[in-house]
Design a binder for these strands. Structure first.
Lengths: 138, 138
DNA sequence: GTATGTGCAAAGACTTTGCTTTGGA
DNA sequence: TCCAAAGCAAAGTCTTTGCACATAC
């Protein structure tokens, strides 16, 4: 049983056919799909999946902290599975010419966030950090 | 004549009563108002201002690079005037308990962004960086 | 005078929700 | 069996747009 599925079952959610498909599709996506993309992919496995269920399922996963909901500047939300491991934490560079999303990690950034919060007397519970740009031409 | 007004006139925009009011209200706002908030404030000066015009005006200002359009996680866009001076560049900490927006600046962050982009072979044209948190309790 | 801009209301895009039926435990 | 969950379509929220009228230049 997959991790996501296990976690959902643990909370007492019914594992319906549709949910299983949505979770599977999400786990197999290494991009950052939108609700619509996810729904399309799910429909190819089980045509009965509706967009409403995808929205509801992602809402659940978001509440459970199992996915990260992104807003990369487009009009629709984009999702990715939240890793179990804190050190897998990464950020995104969005290629404004191709739409590609490049993931990267930077320890200094995490330090910096802590330092800034400390300075301001705040406890940070979340943050956004995204770069938008294009490949450097030689 | 205010800076925004001047810039708009320079591009050949007609300075209608409504636009003048919207620009004035925007310049007098030191928070990060939403379209709706801006419209309410404008209506108090000139009741004829409609939300459609506020949207259109902000769209123009955004295209001209005179305002920054933020998405602080809520459902609506929030705006602020873009400073003339590069060194006024700042970021935001959103207090998740009060909704307050605290502005801060950090030179190391700017360096870091450059370093990351360099590493990835990209030219960064924009970025987002927001912290979400709450006051640290003693 | 004429091209631009405005208000209004309708349409769009994305997301949520009410209701009836379905199906997992 | 029985309550959670699904599908469908309607409603909601924010934003954009078509059109007729108004107005800055």
């Amino acid at each position: 049983m997959s991790r996501l599925l296990q976690k959902c079952a643990d909370v007492g959610l019914k594992m319906t056919e549709q949910r299983k498909v949505i979770l599977k599709v999400l786990e197999e996506s290494d991009d950052h799909p939108s609700v619509e993309t996810l729904c399309e992919r799910a429909k190819q496995v089980d045509a009965s999946v509706s967009i409403a269920t995808v929205y509801r399922t992602l809402g659940l996963l978001d509440n459970l902290g199992l996915v990260i909901k992104h807003d990369f500047g487009g009009s629709t939300a984009r999702f990715e599975i939240k890793s179990e491991h804190d050190h897998d934490h990464h950020h995104h560079l969005i290629d404004t010419e191709t739409g590609d999303i490049i993931e990267f990690q930077d320890d200094k950034l995490e330090e910096l966030i802590h330092a800034i919060a400390e300075r301001l007397g705040y406890e940070v519970v979340d943050h956004t950090f995204e770069l938008f740009g294009h490949k450097k031409k030689p």
